[in-house]
Simulated scan of single mutants.
Amino acid sequence: MSLDSPWKILKSNQIYDNAWIKLTEHQVINPAGGQGIYGEVHFKNLAIGVVVLDEDYNTWLVGQYRFPLKAYSWEIPEGGGLHTVDPMLSAKRELQEETGIIATKFTEIQKMHLSNSVTDEMAIIYIAQDLQIGDSSPEETEELVVRKLAFDEAYQMVMTGEITDSMSVAGILKTKILIEQGKI
């Protein structure tokens, strides 16, 4: 099986560009030989997520209204980090900004593509432990509610579909497995 692309790009046009994303429309020949278009969203930052765990297996979720969804969402603390910055530093910054928590132990648990059919967005998820609680400092675009709860309650929120954010789902499920295996 060849790992070379079965797609042929005839022409590419940049449709949109801002500080966070670039949208390109490609005129293509698809793998079956048909002509068509393919839209590609390039993300200029890494997606960073943090599952927070204290010594009693409590966690913190962040609730906020998500503009693209037109809905409220409960999530692990998450945000973006420049590709040129150590992702762990971005995770520490996002955690402190959104929750006020400073952690001295970070463990990378997952790297994942968030929607590889139309984007190249890469996510990195950490578990944060050894916590100090402080004051949050959200960005002006964020109106956040921070909620401390038992980790198992957050896990149940994933299982019942109350938490739908992909990084949160993946991070909480992976953390549950690591806890059950005695690795956390």
Rank of each mutant, 00 (worst) to 15 (best):
D4Q: 12
P6Q: 04
P6W: 02
I9W: 08
I9R: 08
K11F: 03
S12D: 01
Q14S: 07
I15D: 08
Y16A: 01
N18C: 15
I21T: 15
K22Y: 07
T24I: 14
H26D: 07
V28R: 13
N30G: 01
P31H: 05
A32V: 11
Q35Y: 06
G39I: 05
V41E: 12
F43L: 13
L46R: 14
I48D: 04
G49L: 12
G49W: 05
V51K: 05
D56N: 13
Y57E: 05
N58A: 02
L61Y: 13
Q64A: 01
Y65F: 14
F67D: 14
F67H: 15
P68L: 03
K70P: 00
K70Q: 12
Y72V: 01
E75R: 15
E75C: 11
E75L: 04
P77N: 06
G79S: 10
G80F: 14
H83E: 07
T84I: 12
P87I: 00
M88P: 06
E97D: 12
G100A: 05
G100P: 10
A103L: 07
T104V: 01
E108K: 09
Q110H: 09
H113T: 12
H113K: 12
S115N: 12
S115H: 15
S115Q: 12
S117C: 05
V118P: 02
A123Q: 10
I125Y: 01
D130E: 13
D130R: 07
L131E: 08
G134C: 05
S136E: 08
P138C: 03
E140H: 06
E140M: 06
E142D: 05
E143Q: 08
E143W: 01
V146K: 07
R147Y: 14
R147K: 15
D152R: 13
A154P: 11
T160P: 03
T160F: 11
T160E: 09
E162N: 10
I163H: 09
S166D: 03
V169S: 00
G171L: 09
L173E: 15
K174D: 03
T175C: 11
I177S: 06
I179R: 00
